[in-house]
Simulated scan of single mutants.
Amino acid sequence: MAHRKMNQQRIAKQWAELSFAAPQVILHRTSRMANAGTELSARDRAEFTRMSSEKAVAFYQSWMAMWTAAFAVQYELARAFSSAAMAVATGGQAGAMSTVTATSNAAAKVLSAGLGPVHKKAVANARRLSRHKK
C-alpha cells in the first residue's frame, strides 16, 4: 500500500510541475515568436528548431518508457492473478485485494513512466528559458 501511495504522489508531483512548467515555456516561446518579426536571429532559429524537434523526441521517449514499463509490470500482474487463482482453487481466500492493488500499481507505473520524459523536458525548458531575458 505504501508503494502505491508513493507512485500516486510521484504522479501528482509530475503533473503539478508539468502544469506550471508547460505554460511558462509556451508563454516564453510565443512571445519570442511575436517579437522575432521576419528576420530571425541565430538564437531564435535554434530555439524554434529545438521547439519542434524536442516534441517528437519527448513523444517517442514517452511511448517507449510506457511500453517498457507495461512489459515489466506484466510479470507482476501475472503473479498476482495466478496467486489469486491458486488461492481460490485451494479453497483459501481469493486475495482479490492484492490483485486490485497490483493492477492499480501497474497502471500508476506505466503512467509515471510515460509522464517522465515530457515532465523532464518541460521543467528543464522552463528553467532554461527563465534564465534568458529575451
Rank of each mutant, 00 (worst) to 15 (best):
3 H>Q: 10
3 H>M: 13
5 K>P: 01
9 Q>P: 08
10 R>Y: 14
11 I>G: 05
12 A>K: 07
14 Q>T: 05
15 W>E: 09
18 L>N: 06
19 S>H: 11
22 A>G: 04
24 Q>G: 06
24 Q>S: 07
25 V>D: 00
28 H>M: 06
28 H>V: 02
35 N>P: 01
36 A>E: 04
36 A>M: 11
38 T>D: 07
39 E>W: 14
40 L>Q: 01
41 S>R: 05
41 S>G: 02
43 R>V: 13
43 R>G: 06
44 D>S: 03
45 R>P: 05
49 T>I: 12
49 T>E: 14
51 M>K: 05
52 S>N: 08
54 E>Y: 09
54 E>K: 02
55 K>T: 12
55 K>Y: 13
56 A>M: 09
57 V>P: 00
58 A>V: 09
58 A>Y: 07
59 F>M: 13
59 F>C: 09
60 Y>F: 15
63 W>H: 08
64 M>G: 03
66 M>P: 02
67 W>V: 10
67 W>Y: 14
68 T>Q: 12
69 A>M: 03
69 A>E: 00
69 A>W: 06
69 A>T: 02
70 A>H: 06
72 A>T: 09
74 Q>N: 11
75 Y>K: 15
76 E>M: 08
77 L>W: 05
80 A>T: 05
81 F>H: 12
82 S>Q: 03
82 S>P: 04
82 S>T: 12
83 S>M: 10
84 A>S: 15
86 M>A: 10
88 V>M: 06
88 V>F: 11
89 A>W: 12
89 A>R: 12
92 G>T: 02
93 Q>G: 03
94 A>C: 04
95 G>F: 06
95 G>P: 00
99 T>I: 01
101 T>W: 14
102 A>N: 05
106 A>N: 02
108 A>C: 07
111 L>F: 05
111 L>M: 12
115 L>N: 02
117 P>H: 07
122 A>I: 02
122 A>P: 03
122 A>G: 00
123 V>A: 01
124 A>K: 08
125 N>D: 10
131 R>L: 15
131 R>D: 09
132 H>R: 07
133 K>G: 07
134 K>T: 08
134 K>M: 09
